[in-house]
Amino acid sequence: GTVKVQGITIKVPNPDKAYKIAKKLAKKYNLTVTRKGNTIKVE
């Protein structure tokens, strides 16, 4: 899958794990995490 952070896309082998990490970071930096299948977008 991929993770998008402010325009940066990161390929990740485990979208579930990445999503959990993204959620933690999002809370810390007051961002929104959206997930569509293997693509995770943080904005």
Rank of each mutant, 00 (worst) to 15 (best):
I40Y: 03
D16F: 08
N30S: 07
T34V: 08
P13I: 13
D16I: 07
V12D: 01
T2N: 05
K20D: 11
K17D: 08
K24M: 12
T2Q: 10
L25E: 00
I10Q: 01
T34A: 06
N30M: 06
K11Q: 12
V5I: 13
K23M: 13
V12I: 10
T34N: 04
G37Y: 03
K20E: 14
P15Y: 09
G37C: 09
L31P: 01
T2I: 13
K24I: 14
L25G: 00
K27G: 09
N14W: 13
G1N: 06
A22Q: 00
L25F: 08
K28F: 12
V33F: 03
I21G: 01
V42G: 02
K17R: 09
T34R: 06
V5Y: 15
T39M: 10
K11V: 13
L25D: 00
I40E: 02
K41T: 15
A26Y: 11
P15W: 13
T39R: 05
I8T: 02
K24W: 14
I10C: 14
K27P: 04
P13C: 15
T34K: 11
A18D: 00
I8D: 01
L25K: 01
K20M: 11
R35S: 08
L25M: 04
N30V: 05
V5E: 03
K36L: 10
A18N: 00
K4I: 15
K20N: 11
I40H: 08
Y29G: 02
K4N: 10
K28V: 12
N14E: 06
T34P: 00
P15K: 05
P13Q: 10
I8S: 03
D16A: 07
Q6P: 07
N30Y: 11
G7K: 08
Q6M: 14
A18H: 01
K27A: 11
I40S: 05
G37A: 05
Q6G: 15
K17V: 13
K11E: 08
K28D: 03
K11G: 06
A22D: 00
T32A: 06
P13M: 13
T32H: 08
Y19A: 02
N38C: 15
T34L: 04
V42N: 07
E43Y: 13
K28A: 10
K17G: 04
